[in-house]
Each structure stands twice: as C-alpha cells, then as structure tokens.
Design a protein around this nucleic acid. Sequence first.
RNA 1: GCCCCUGUAGCUCAGUAGGAUAGAGCGUGAGAUUCCUAAUCUCAAGGUCGCAGGUUCGAAUCCUGCCAGGGGCGCCA
Length: 550
Amino acid sequence: MLRRKIREEIIESLKRNYPHVEPSSFEIEKPKRPEFGDLSTNIALVHQNILKAKARDIAEILANDLRSKTELFTKVEVAGPGFINFWINSDLYRNNLKEIITKRDHYGRCDLGQGKKVLVEFVSANPTGPLHIGHGRGAAYGDALARLLKFAGFEVVKEYYINDRGTQMEILGASVLYRAKELRGEKIVFPEDYYQGDYIYDIAREALKLYPDLLEKEEKEALEICKELAIKTILEDIKRDLEIFRVHYDSWYSERELYRKGLVEEVIEVLKQKGYIYEEDGALWFKSSAFGDEKDRVVRKSSGEWTYFASDIAYHYEKFLLRGFDFGVNLWGADHHGYVPRLKGALSALEINPERLRILLIQMVNLIEGGQLKSMSTRRAEYVELKELVRDVGVDAVRFIFLSRSQDAPLDFDVDLVKKQSAENPVYYVQYAHARISSVWEKAKTIGLSPEDLLKSNLSLLQEEESLEILRKLAEFSDIIELSALQLAPYRIVYYLLELAGLFHEYYNKFKIVSSDKELTLARLALAEGCRIVIKNGLELLGVESPERM
RNA sequence: GCCCCUGUAGCUCAGUAGGAUAGAGCGUGAGAUUCCUAAUCUCAAGGUCGCAGGUUCGAAUCCUGCCAGGGGCGCCA
C-alpha cells in the first residue's frame, strides 16, 4: 500500500523531469543492507539508455525532486551505480499500526480479485484407498491457496473432483469381491494389480454383513455391489481424514454426474461442430496437435468407452461456460504434466482462454523410511496414511511442513525424522510468539490495561531501531498477501511469519513490554498487539491455529 | 530420444520477475533466566550459488550447451 504510493510519486517525478519519456518498468525493493535505506529504486538505471544520460545524473535529479516530499521521506540518497535510496518517514508505519489494531481480522485483505469467481480444485484422489502424505501436500497447499485467494478478494469455491467411474473402479470392486470370497474360505489367487491394502478386507467384511448372499448372486451384480460399497466407504474415509486435516470442501463433484447430465456427449459434439474431432481406427480423436500438443488424443476408445480425457474436457467446459467461473486453479501431481497441453488445447478449441486455467503441478513427496527412499503406491499399499501422520505429529506441524515449500520443489519426507523433530517444527516458533503476546496481555490486564486503551497510545514513543524494524515488517504484510496471491505461492506467507516472529522474539528478550511507565507500556503493547494480529491472520491463511498459551 | 521439475553452508531450504559485501533454521562451539512463557535470545565457525559460455552498467536470478537427481512420454487413470 505504502509501496504503491511511493511508486506513484516516483513516476510523477520522472514525468515532471523528463516529460517526453514513457516510463518503463522498474523495481522498488527493500535493500538487504540498512545503510541503503528502507526502500530503493533502480529507476535511473533502467532508464539510462532511453534517456541517453548517466544513471547517477538521472538519479540526482529525481532524488532532488523527491526530497521535498517530507511527509513520505526523511532522507533520499543516490548511491552505487545510480540507485535512489529512501528513508521512510516512520510516522507512516506508526499510522499503519493503528490501522492494524482497528481492522484486526481484516488487516491485510485486498481487492486484487475484485470479486472474480475462482474454482480451486485439489486432491481429487481416486476413491480407491486412504489418503497418504502425498495427498496431504496437495490438501494443505490447495486449502491455503483457497483461503489466500479469498483474503485477496476473490470469490472462491473449493472442489474435490471424484473419479468414480472407469477401469480403476472396476478393479476396486473386484478386489473387494475376491477378498469376500477369501473370507468365506474360498481358495483364491489375489491378482497383483488389484488393491492390496487391508482396508479392502474391512469393506469385504461389511459387504458380507450387508448382503449375506453376496457370493450366491450373479457375478456382475456382486461386483456392482462391492464397487458401490467400496466407493462409498472410501469416500467417507477420505472426507473424514480431510476434515481432521482442517480441509473443508464447498463441493464434491462426481465424474458420473457429468455423464448423467449428458455433458460429455454434448461437449464432444460441440468440438465436432468446430472440426476438432475425427474418427480413426474405430476411435474418436481430438486434434490437440493443432494446439501445440505433440500428438492427437483419444476421447472415445474403439471399445466405445469414453476416456478420462473426455470427462475432463466436459468438466472444464461446464466449469467455465455453464457454471460461470472466471478462473480455475487445478492442483495436479507432477506426473500429470504431459496432460496439460491437451487440456489447455481443448479449452482453446472451446474458445475458452487457456490463461483462465492455472494448473499447478505439485512435485513428488518422496517417502523416506529407515533411510530408504520409497515410492508410494495405493495399489501396492505402500504409503504412509495422512491420518496416521497427523495423529503422530499434529495438524499444525504437518500443514506447516507442506506449506513451507514451493509446490514445484520436490519434498523429501523422512517420516522418522519428522516424528522425532516434530517438537522442533518451526510452526511452534511462530505460534510461540502469539502465545507470548497473549501472555503479555495477561500481565497487562493485572495493571488495568485492556485492548481498548491501545487507540489512545502514543506511538511516537516507539523510537528504538528494533521497534521500527517491526513496524516496517508489519507494513509489509499487505505486499506479501498480494504477491503470494498473484504467484499462487502460500509458502511466502510462511517465511514472512517466521521473520516477523523472529523480530518479535528478539524484541521481547531485549525490552520489557509491561513496565511501571504506563505510556511506554501502552505503546509497546500496541506494537505487540500488531504482531499478534498479523501472526494470527497469517496463520489463519495457512490453516494453522494461533494458541493463547503453549 | 523428447518434455517438465530440481541442483545455494555438513543437513533442510529462503533469496520478493536482474541489483549493491550471499540469507535463515537444524547441527557444531561459547554464553544469557531474582523480572511479561528458555518452544526464546546473543556471539562464533561454516560458500567455486552443479559446470562452461553468452546477454548488460550489474547474473544465484535471464538465454544456450553440458553434468547429476526425480518425474512424464499408452485407445491407462
């Protein structure tokens, strides 16, 4: 917010001094070193070629001009090859602190989204087994992203797309039926490519209880019963696991629903009208090569079955054209990356701007157990359940680990290490700052101070460098929100919170907040309260709790 | 072979769409608590930013090539 104001001033100044020039893009950033000021711009360096002048000369002219803005700057300097460094009038930061205290939960919100409708689709694991830690990463990331976009002014719907039809579902049903036979004492050979997990036994047991005559029924009917029961049971488990993980969906969308509504045939017909569908070798093909894909793709197999791709086209057709979403964010496993061009191609063919769909590929979670790298597989029952991890380590710690990395960096997950080190999880560092501030309030209340008194506080008493540093950091929060929303990068909030918590802990150790000096106490309480509010708002976006005590 | 991601301190990772002398945490070593929570703080040691070129005032960041690790390239889902 502050940054935007300063940017405007700089552009104004450039225009005043060089009326003939069209300003090109430049940076305003926080320099690494304090002697380079609070903010710095490279505008003179960027324009030196266009203006055919030395960067330092341009910088001097602009700096001279901007020095007169004393309500904004206390000092403006030219440095190095031609940077202009600004020292910000710290009253601006003090006013910002008042704003934080007034706005509370709302501090940091912005209108980047302008009420545009976004559908965030994530996890969407096939209902063939329990959620494992790989899904957990997607769950944490998608949920935080949805919270963030909402905070940034979008209208957000969180959706789980259920692949509840197709080959895998048939295999699932068959797996249950085989286990049921086994339970009844039949000698069976359980196929390798069937689902191996123990939960299949549980479902089989349940099936036999509900349908004592299951094995006497026609094979086809029995399979159907097993399949339906399996999908229902597993989906319930998935929902429960996600709720425990504090992920709540607005919408569960069934792939079958697309067929029930006839949307698959409808959209393929639309594409056919546009000339992007053709028949070859008995199958129907979509001309994705016309949109940069390396080859065309099958939408209906020669067997007459629709492919997963066909459902997906219909799903996105409905999402953008019928349900009216302005944007879509899909979180996919990185192993689906080859799938991106064909889906974007299909959107283009439907005259939906593919830019409206952002597909984030979540890199692998490598499972390390006993020092061994393991690949996770639902079918082979090689995985660590999300539920189990959450039970051992806690929701906050698990979410924080997943959210502290960009989605495109692979994540090595050493289960033993995480369990052992859960007590050292950085999430506690941030939460501890919040708890400490709450505890400071306990103390302040004993001498008769309450949050209402803060608005009367005299913030000009906050003069130490450590106070100013915190004030500046607090003002950065809105920049961080905007940036992480634009980049769909919630992990930036994680690092921001760690920095803010660090500054607070440092301050806390060095200065006494509650003292006999009532005026100073109020000012410092205001600073602490600003930290508390921003930490709480930030953690809320991550889906992490802010405890009053630890 | 082609495509995507990754490579920064012993380990795990930041580095804000190119900036000034490269940053944390863990681990290692030394210290801080009669006082608001020591899940904290202070100090120290630790680097060829995978390698080689290029672009420019300036590169960990952008481009090209190479090396290493992971993933993907079906009428599978």
